[in-house]
Every structure is written in structure tokens, then in C-alpha cells.
Design a protein around this nucleic acid. Sequence first.
RNA 1: GUGGUUGUAGCUCAAUUGGUCAGAGCAUCGGAUUGUGGUUCCGAGGGUUGCCGGUUCGAGUCCGGUCUACCACCCCA
Length: 441
Amino acid sequence: MESLPGFRDFEPSTCAQRNALFHGWRTVAQRFGFEEFDGPIAEPLELFTQKSGEEIVNQLFAFEDKGGRKMALRPEMTPSLVRIFGKNLATLKKPTKLFNITEQFRYERPQKGRLRSFYQFNADIVGEASLSAEAELIALAAESLRYFGLTEEHFYVRLSDRQLWQLWLKAFGITDEALVGGILSLLDKWERRPKEDIEKDLAKLLPSSVQAKTFFDATEQLRHCKTLEAIKACFSQQATDAELSEALRQRLSEFGKLLHELSALGCEKFVAVDLTIVRGLAYYTGFVFELFETGNQGRALAGGGRYDQLFEKLTRHPMPAVGFAAGDVTLTDLLNKYHLLPEYKRKIDVFCVFEETERDRALRCSQMLRRENFSVLYPFGETKMLSKQLKKAYVEQPRYILIFTQELSSRGKVHVKCLANETTREVGSEEVVEVFRRERD
RNA sequence: GUGGUUGUAGCUCAAUUGGUCAGAGCAUCGGAUUGUGGUUCCGAGGGUUGCCGGUUCGAGUCCGGUCUACCACCCCA
């Protein structure tokens, strides 16, 4: 029987790779002082529909329990985070820096870089309105990739700002919230669809005062801006009133500060201003970013941004927050591509082989060594010839082989073979543990 | 959810136009080797060719359906 579509089996070698990812993520998050938390793997369905709307249900593993409760496997961690920490926001330390490594589930068609069950590294800063939070999260995202040996040759951060986009639309007189959302979602698929289709959709959305063609060309120009100066120049081509100019000046100043802080954090090599990133869902309120392989092959390695209104929406209490998530599927693909995931090999310290009469003695010794934190194997079942046992022992490549024979026991000795230098020592039976303790140091 | 490609042993792959085609290597287990050394040699197990149906004297091979995987859409929290 096979696993369900989009679900994976983790045999020892792939499980070890997965755990290596988890270890790296956890290590780096702790370096930044983020605290690990976790929540239930399933939540009330309502938690997800409140945040994302009813349409989300057909993308969820949603079902009813035997008590008729509507529930769903978690497709992301942010709603749980808001639920858990929204309970006592008033007493929450600010800022609170949180991370977790969770299995998540989305009912979608599996394809490259996307499965139905996957793991994500989530990091969030709650209770910090300043851009220092964005800077630190982007730095954390970059460091979590650097940890595995990836450099600016392999990946980069595309940094954008939904507030700039709102200002841009405002310059065209577009302020209606639903309309802004519609155009932002159009921006999200801008380069994946033919120009004519985009213009057609724009013509339907835009107020009659704005020509689709004009808007498209100007927006196309803004999308390609690589610097803040270019963005400023782009805006200045539009007729903007004093209020808008001042708002733009302030926002560009914030953007500049963020870039500056990222430089101080040693991330200038990784970060590119890139307004083509807007991110699909509407709850992002400010800076947004996505990490990609250089050349933009494949899906995003990580993505996130500021969501200052989500707490209020779900708990009625306002609370600024920024977060990102990085998935294991795209990262594993990338690391495999550059051979940055080591081959897994079980590490055994000691393999015991013994003559039939010495079995109990060998097992006693094995257990003493295990209690001293050494990994120890010995053959199971019917005792075979020493030569056969040794064959098995060598396959495991232990650091040492312990040999127990009747003849050695009669003299109170065992043999300790060191595979590294092919030497054999004769050691007193009672000293074995002490000898290994010394070896360890 | 829509379209395209695909499927042979645990893994990687063979099998002429439909006709001894169900095979090899790796891996696993056993023996050679009745007591201190891996690499050698020999052998064994393991597949209703994804599943269901159809065409045919005969299907791994052709046709239809279905499922999986992959790719492109939709979506991407």
C-alpha cells in the first residue's frame, strides 16, 4: 500500500535529512533569541475561515469529528499563533519573538516543490511596530539558509512594500479597499499572464478616469525599479498632490532605513528591492518579502511580511506583527541540487562479538557502555562463528569492535579493536568502561 | 478542479514489428569459512509488468477507463 498523495514516508536516510533541516532552523532561531512554541495539529475550522474566508475550505483537510465539530488540519501556523497569544495580549512581553517547526496540510494538487503534507519553519515577532522587526526576520530567514552552506550565489531576498503599492494606486485615484485588493492580486500574476489579458482585466477593474493602457505601462515601469531613487522618479511622473508626496517621502524613508538596517546585519548581498512581490492574501499591511533561488527557478524558499491588522481581526485587540515561513520541500530540493545535504550513515561506537559462552558477559558490557552514552550493537539470536560476526560488524563501520572469547575471559581480558588504526589492545574485563571513557575525552 | 507525460523486483533499469519476455545489476538473506578481519566466489528469496476492462490465437507491448508520480494551469496562507 502506498502513502496518500502528497504525503511522504521518511526512511532513516531521508528522516535524517529532514531532522538536519529542523536542527539548522532551530539552531539559528535560537541564536536570534526566538522562543519555540507549538499548538495543536488540528484547529476549529472557524479559525481558518475567519482569517481567510469560506473559500479556503476546499483547500483544507476539513472534516467533522464524532461530536459534529467542524475542524481542519492546520494549513499554516499564523492563525494558531494569533489564537494562542491573542488570549492575553495585554500581558504579552513586547516584542515577543516566536518560532516553530510544524507539519502542515493543504488539500491541493501536489507538484514540484509543493505537497499536501510539508514542514514549515515559522518565525514571528509580535508587538513591534518598527521596521527593526522586519530587518531581523529577513536576516533570520537569510541566516537559516546560510547555515546550510547556501550563499548569495544561491539565493536572494526580494523585498517589496504593499504600502508603496497603495500609494501608487492612490496616485491614480484608486482608494477603494476591494479595488486595491483586486489590483494587488492582479499584480501577483502580472508576469505569468499575457499583457493583453492583464490589460483586459484592468479595463474591467479600473475607474473610468484611468486608461488601462496608461496604467499598465506606468505600472510596468514601477515594477522594474531596482532602487528607491528609481521608485521616486517613477512616482514623480504621475501628477501627485502634496499630501501624497509627503506620504511617499515618509514611506521611502522607512524603506531606506530598513535597507540600512539590513546592511548593518550583513544582509546587503542578499537583498534586492523588487516591487513585483505583493503576496497573494490581503492581510499583509506593509513590507513583504520572498526568498528565491537566484534566477528565480522554482517556488519561493520562504515568504512573509507585516500583518498589523490580523490580531485585531481575530481578537478585536490591535497588535502589530511580522512573520515569515520557510518550507522544507523547496529547501530540500535546493540543498540536494548543490549536494549540501550529507549522506546519512548510522554512527556506531562499539560492536561486540563473542563466543557462545560469553554472550551474557558481552551483553552486560554493552549495557554499561550504553549507560555511558556510547552507541553499541551486538548480534542477535543464535551465536555464529566469530568470523561471521566480524563480517557483520565491519559493515556497520563501528569505531571499535569488542571481542569476547572463552580463552580471553579465562585470563580476565577482552580485545578492543580500533578500526581507525587497525590495532588491537588487550584490556582487563573490568577496565573496559574506563578505557572507553578515556577514549571519549 | 482542468490539460499533458508517465508506471516492469526494495532501488536503478532491460525485454526486436504484439510471439519462451518476466530478466540484469545493486540491496537483502544463505553458503564457501566449526571460532579474530571487510573487498572474492557460489546460491536463494522477491514481480498476477499500478489497477480494471477491451482488441487478439496470443498483450509488459495496442485501445479505453482509473489511480499514482511528474509537468503546466487554478491556487499559493
